[in-house]
Write a protein that binds this DNA or RNA. Structure first.
Lengths: 112, 112
DNA sequence: AATACAAGTAGTTTTTAAGATACTTACTAT
DNA sequence: ATAGTAAGTATCTTAAAAACTACTTGTATT
């Protein structure tokens, strides 16, 4: 790691994991990497997430400007979530995570 | 993301985050990227972690074969933790996380 | 008038992660 | 004999994340 201040570099890991960690955030971001998705689309692909949890996570991601919410139709109300311009910067990180995970399955899945 | 099965690729995000996520695991792995460290060294650099939490996290990382524990001296007992050969594979991922975090501080730190 | 749908909200409960505090073991040094 | 050190363990409590269940709003359909 060729970072000037190593201690600070390592602390930042915790901050990034606040954004991408937890049970759902990483997955939500991963799904939005491909293309925008509606609330219920997300709810379907994220098997077993509840409405309230999904709402909470999306609000958080909006607050930190990773995701934006756009009402695309008033009636029936249709809402679309997409990565912000800034949020797009997470794509490579997500990709790295997915690649590592697929390559190291036998261990990743150990817990099961 | 040029992964064959996208759904599966995304699910793996959750599994990887089990390994690297939480309040401490990412930081522990990051510290071990540089070189092996003793229990109390880790305890010192990980400001405010308790013994019991550190032990728990290290045992988990051992269980999944990311980290190995080596008694290097019986008395006074000295124990060293290091990444396994397999664990080394996480270095690039940690590096990517750190880099993203440093670059996007203004947002990462928003919560404070 | 009743039903359905999208996108939620509200309130409560359960589960999990992490923290606090105190103790332990095997030894060495004073 | 007492204190100190490294690396823990054992319990218990607290706090935070996620789940569960039910309800809401506005509109359109049968």
């Amino acid at each position: 790691m060729e970072v000037k201040n190593k201690q600070q570099g390592i602390k930042v890991v915790g901050d990034v994991l606040d954004i991408v960690g937890g049970k759902w955030r990483g997955q939500i971001l991963a799904h939005l990497c491909d293309n925008p998705k509606r609330f219920n689309e997300l709810k379907t692909v994220l098997n077993r997430i509840t409405s309230s949890t999904l709402t909470k996570e999306l609000r958080y991601l909006e607050d930190i400007k990773m995701v934006e919410r756009k009402v695309i139709q008033e009636t029936p109300m249709v809402v679309e979530y997409r990565l912000t311009k800034h949020g797009m910067s997470i794509k490579d990180l997500i990709k790295t995570i997915v690649e590592w995970g697929l390559k190291h399955r036998e261990i990743v899945f150990k817990k099961n």
